[in-house]
Design a protein around this nucleic acid. Structure first.
Length: 891
DNA sequence: GAATTTCCTG
DNA sequence: CAGGAAATTC
């Protein structure tokens, strides 16, 4: 910390001011993320169920087969995202399905007619992003099953003019909602498309706006009008302003100068920099400015509003869609009925079901939309219904499957017809086609297409499901039940092969279709199911390992034992309290009986909280290794690992001495923190009691452990250095008392050098970790300190204070109380007057800087820091004493 | 490249 | 307060 030198500091500061790229990056990414989300949302809306995140395997519109699945999928996603879009999205699946079907049909039937791309493909657009969006959509569509099926002519981009005029060859979408009436709904669809398009555009614009917001942009720019002109202006302005800081160092902010009035309320947005005579280079480091926050807030708000609006629109759309759907279904049913009547002559029964279906039509609700006719129909057709199940919530899956089976059994009883559901379906489809006299030869083609589509869809669905399951986090409750069943379902649906010997009693149809990688699926599912099991297994492994690892010998040394054993049992992770107690007992008194502790090795090492993945991988978490290495490194004699038997080298006697011995080479921070906690109770005392640390003499076994240790932290050297202090009580970690001491020291020095810290924390074995931790403490102190200063300075300004002189910091000042509360909570230390002075100076510095509008400069605080760091005063020698706390506090 | 410092996030 | 990342300095 060579910086007490003001010159150095100055130069450094000078150089330092640059736009904080980091921040920028962060902000940008954040925005981007949001934007992306929005885009996804919009896509979802248009496509209905998309994939999760980027990888979307599930394609929309695969025939009706996935109707349910899609919905559930969407729901899952929504839930995950905690997005408020639920209702809004609901409608889309339906729309998507329909449009998709239309699309497919058109493609097949001389796709040239196109026009209608389906709601999802509304590409026409305006902004580039839109175009992009459209592109991506279309590409996705292509990827999706539809692609598999029909390489039909790419749909023309400009859709809105749905030329759907001619009744789309009513394909028979067996599994799907009735397509026949499509022609009727053309208008509605168009209208919906437009609406949707509009909504989409709005969203995109919003996104663009958000992205173009530069951090430094003044709040005013953030207003989120839909007005595109404005938008353009903003974006251009933003780009300018965002770049400006770097471009014109001294003249910074001119571009974003703002009305002074906002000065008080929104500190960040200050007009041109007044009196910034210093030749600061622009701050390259991006800092988070108040202004940014401001604009962001606005952004968020506006976005929410937009969402609300979108929601409303979507709801309307949903209603429309529902109506349409109802119409379609009715039409379809009519046709279907007529067909079936004819079929009945041929001996195909199943009227009863139809009746039921019709009844349901009346009740179309949101729910019904998803399962609506589709599911019912599936049931009629028998096994096919499982397709829908595939995407259902796993938890419900089994139940539903059983219910379906029962139903099916009944149905089968009724109709002796063995026909496979699938075949039947196809047949129906063909029949429908023929009936309509639609594309004559197209019927078979359609059937084929549908088959393929189904296959594709199924496979994709399966992938999606697998993915979903494989993600560990989802494991929660929901997934457990479904593992076995879920996987199979999809495959069954995909099967065109009619008869699948039911592997499971309950879910006969589940037989995996090899074609679709059913086998793979099953495997993956198993794996997926395994997560839980694996997880446990891994944990167990770890635990066992942990047990093994924890060398009982170590326990004899209080320090070690405390750490190792005390540490977190799985249950106490967070609270090291128990440990503390232990340690306290051991560490506190020389008489420690800790030696007894060793035997029962704690089940887990505190640090053993490897993520499941890690565990499964078989990696031992870094922390995991610590247990041995640390102690071993510094103090060979302790090496349990090593050749010495655990106990052999250490006679009981030594234990006491060693226990506090500085074993710690370096511990991971976690360890440190743990220790800190542990030490907290006994902290102060420990130092007194333990003096001679075990001789560092024996450097026996460095081999293995050493290397390990080294790999983890290369602090051995530091350790060696530390030993000098070993004469005194040396602690391996920083205790709460150390923290307290540091806080008190902060009253004297805000910028202690590391050397100074070493001097004043002689009872601590310094290593890199410790040093950095101490430094970090002070850094944090400063952070808090300056935050308070700024806060109060602004407060004063807001309260109308005009002169810095008006502000004083006394012991009764709020500012002081806040600070004292932070650094001297117990208020058992008398804060030196000097600190009050410094605080006052700091406050005034902030005040002046803010009043001068310097806070517009990202690095405006640097100057203040420079000033403050010169105000450090000597820390009383008493702080060098290990007992300083007692002495200080009890005086 | 290590050491520091600040900023940001949790 | 800890962690992480970026910026800066030496």
């Amino acid at each position: 910390m060579p910086d007490h030198d003001s010159t150095t500091l100055l130069t450094r500061q000078t150089k330092r001011r640059r736009v904080d790229i980091g921040v920028k990056r962060t902000v940008g990414s954040a925005i981007f993320t949001r934007a992306r989300e929005t885009l996804l949302d919009s896509m979802n809306q248009s496509h209905g169920p998309d994939q999760e995140g980027d990888c979307s395997l599930v394609s929309h519109g695969h025939g009706g087969t996935n109707g349910d699945g899609e919905k559930s999928n969407v729901l899952r996603k929504l839930l995950k995202r905690a997005n408020s879009y639920e209702d809004a999205i609901m409608p889309f699946p339906g729309a998507t399905i329909i449009s998709q079907l239309l699309k497919n049909n058109m493609g097949k039937n001389g796709g040239s007619d196109s026009g209608f791309q389906g709601s999802g493909a509304l590409s026409s657009g305006g902004s580039e992003i839109q175009a992009e969006d459209a592109c991506s959509n279309s590409s996705r569509d292509r990827d999706s099953p539809s692609d598999c099926l029909s390489p039909g002519p790419p749909l023309p981009p400009p859709p809105s003019s749905s030329s759907f005029g001619r009744p789309p060859p009513p394909s028979n979408l067996n599994s799907h909602a009735p397509s026949q009436p499509l022609s009727l709904s053309t208008f509605d669809l168009d209208r919906l498309s437009d609406e949707h398009l509009r909504a989409k555009r709005a969203r995109v614009e919003n996104i663009i706006r958000g992205m173009s917001h530069s951090p430094l942009v003044r709040p005013g720019a953030g207003d989120h009008n839909q007005d595109s002109n404005r938008d353009n202006e903003n974006s251009s302005n933003n780009s300018n302003s965002s770049n400006d800081p770097r471009v014109d160092g001294n003249s910074h902010n001119h571009s974003r100068s703002e009305c002074p009035s906002s000065l008080l309320s929104s500190p960040g947005s200050r007009g041109g920099v007044v009196g910034v005579g210093e030749v600061y280079r622009e701050n390259k480091r991006k800092q988070r400015l108040p202004q940014q926050q401001h604009s962001f807030t606005q952004l968020v708000c506006s976005r929410q509003e937009q969402r609300q609006e979108e929601r409303r629109q979507l709801k309307l759309q949903l209603e429309d869609m529902q109506k349409q759907l109802r119409q379609l279904q009715e039409k379809f049913y009519q046709i279907y009925d007529s067909e079936t009547e004819e079929d009945e002559e041929n001996g195909e029964g199943g009227d009863a079901d139809r009746g039921g279906d019709r009844e349901e039509d009346g009740n179309l609700s949101e729910d019904s939309i998803r399962s609506d006719g589709l599911e019912e129909r599936h049931r009629d057709r028998g096994r096919h219904s499982h397709d829908d199940l595939s995407e259902l919530d796993p938890g419900l899956f089994l139940d539903r499957a059983r219910a379906l089976l029962r139903e099916q059994a009944l149905m089968d009883g009724e109709m002796e017809d063995d026909t496979d559901g699938r075949e039947e379906e196809e047949r129906n489809g063909e029949r429908v086609m023929k009936r309509r006299g639609g594309a004559g030869g197209g019927g078979r083609q359609l059937a084929e297409t549908l088959k393929q589509e189904l296959n594709c869809a199924v496979s994709q669905v399966v992938d999606t499901v697998v993915k979903g399951f494989s993600s560990p986090k989802q494991a929660a409750g929901h997934h457990h039940g479904c593992h076995s069943s879920t996987p199979a379902a999809p495959s069954s649906s995909s099967n065109s092969s009619s008869s699948c010997p039911p592997p499971f009693g309950p879910l006969p149809s589940l037989t995996p279709d090899s074609r679709f990688g059913g086998g793979a699926l099953a495997l993956s599912l198993n794996g997926d199911g395994s997560p839980t099991p694996n997880y446990h297994a891994s944990n167990q492994r770890l635990h066992c390992f942990g047990d093994v690892i924890v060398p009982s010998p170590l326990d004899s040394f209080s320090g070690l034992s405390g750490r190792l054993s005390g540490v977190p049992t799985p249950n106490d992770q967070t609270e090291a309290l128990p440990l503390v107690v232990r340690k306290t007992g051991g560490g506190g008194g020389p008489e420690n009986t800790n030696s007894s502790l060793p035997p029962p090795p704690p089940p887990h090492h505190p640090s053993l909280h490897p993520s499941p993945l890690t565990a499964s991988l078989g990696f031992s978490p870094p922390s995991f290794r610590h247990p041995f290495p640390l102690p071993l490194m510094g103090y060979p004699f302790q090496s349990p690992l090593g050749s010495h038997g655990a106990g052999a080298g250490y006679p009981p006697g030594p234990k006491d001495h060693h226990r506090s011995s500085p074993d710690s080479m370096d511990m991971t921070r976690e360890t440190i923190s743990l220790r800190t906690k542990m030490a907290s109770l006994g902290g102060g005392h420990l130092s007194h009691h333990h003096h001679r640390q075990s001789s560092p003499s024996q450097h026996g076994p460095e081999g293995l452990s050493l290397s390990l240790i080294k790999s983890e932290c290369g602090d051995l050297q530091d350790m060696a250095d530390i030993s000098p202090y070993s004469g005194n009580t040396i602690q391996e970690g920083l205790s709460p008392n150390h923290l307290k001491k540091a806080k008190l020291m902060f009253f004297y020095t805000r910028y202690p050098s590391s050397n100074m810290l070493k001097m004043y924390f002689a009872d601590v074995k310094f290593n890199r970790c410790i040093t950095s931790q101490l430094i970090k403490w002070f850094s944090n102190f400063r952070e808090f300190y300056y935050i308070q200063m700024e806060k109060f300075a602004r407060q004063a300004i807001n309260e109308g204070v005009t002169g810095a002189e008006e502000m004083t910091v006394g012991r009764d000042a709020e500012l002081f109380r806040a600070l004292n509360m932070h650094y001297n909570k117990a208020n058992d230390f008398e804060v030196p007057d000097r600190f009050l002075e410094v605080a006052q100076v700091t406050l005034r510095e902030f005040f002046n800087a803010i009043v001068a509008g310097k806070d517009a400069d990202p690095s405006w605080k640097k100057a203040i820091y420079k000033v403050i760091c010169k105000l450090d005063s000597e820390v009383p020698d008493i702080f060098k004493s290990p007992n300083c706390l007692q002495e200080l506090l009890h005086d």
